[in-house]
Amino acid sequence: MIKLFLRYNILQFIWTILLSIHACMADLRNSYSQLHYGQKLERRMITSYDGYSILDCVEDCLRTTRCRSINYYQGAHFCQTNFEKRTTVPGLYIEKPGWIYSDIEDWDKEIAGACSRSSCRINEKCIPQPFDQFTCVISDCGEPRGERFSMEHVREWDAIGITRGIHITCTAQYNQLGSELFVCRSNGTWRTNLSCHDKYY
Rank of each mutant, 00 (worst) to 15 (best):
L41H: 01
E124N: 10
Q39M: 14
L194M: 07
G146F: 07
Q129W: 15
E124T: 08
I54L: 05
G51K: 04
R66G: 06
Q80S: 02
L35Q: 08
G91D: 06
R43G: 00
A172C: 00
R29M: 06
L177W: 03
M25S: 12
L55I: 09
C79M: 01
R63H: 10
R86M: 12
K109Q: 07
Y49F: 09
N187D: 15
R148K: 14
N193P: 02
D198K: 13
I100Y: 11
H36G: 11
P97S: 13
Q133W: 10
D50Y: 03
I122P: 00
N30A: 14
F182S: 05
I160G: 13
W99C: 01
S102N: 09
N82L: 09
S186R: 13
H22W: 10
S186I: 11
F5A: 06
G113I: 05
A159H: 11
I10D: 04
I10T: 06
K85T: 10
K40T: 01
S139M: 02
C24W: 00
A159C: 15
I168H: 05
L41C: 00
I14R: 03
N187R: 10
G98K: 08
G91F: 03
M1I: 12
S150Y: 12
F131L: 15
G178C: 01
W15N: 11
I138S: 04
L177T: 07
F5G: 02
C67R: 02
A172R: 07
L55K: 00
R63Q: 11
Q129M: 15
I10A: 12
T81E: 09
W107A: 06
T16R: 09
L62T: 06
P144D: 13
Y101A: 04
I138N: 04
F182I: 07
I70D: 08
W99T: 00
D56S: 10
C61G: 15
Q129A: 13
G38N: 14
L4W: 06
H153E: 15
D140T: 12
I122W: 11
C57N: 02
H197P: 01
R121N: 14
G188Q: 02
R185M: 14
T135L: 14
Y72R: 01
S48D: 11
H167F: 12
V137C: 01
W190Q: 08
Y200G: 00
M151T: 09
T135C: 09
V154T: 15
L6G: 02
C79A: 00
Y8M: 07
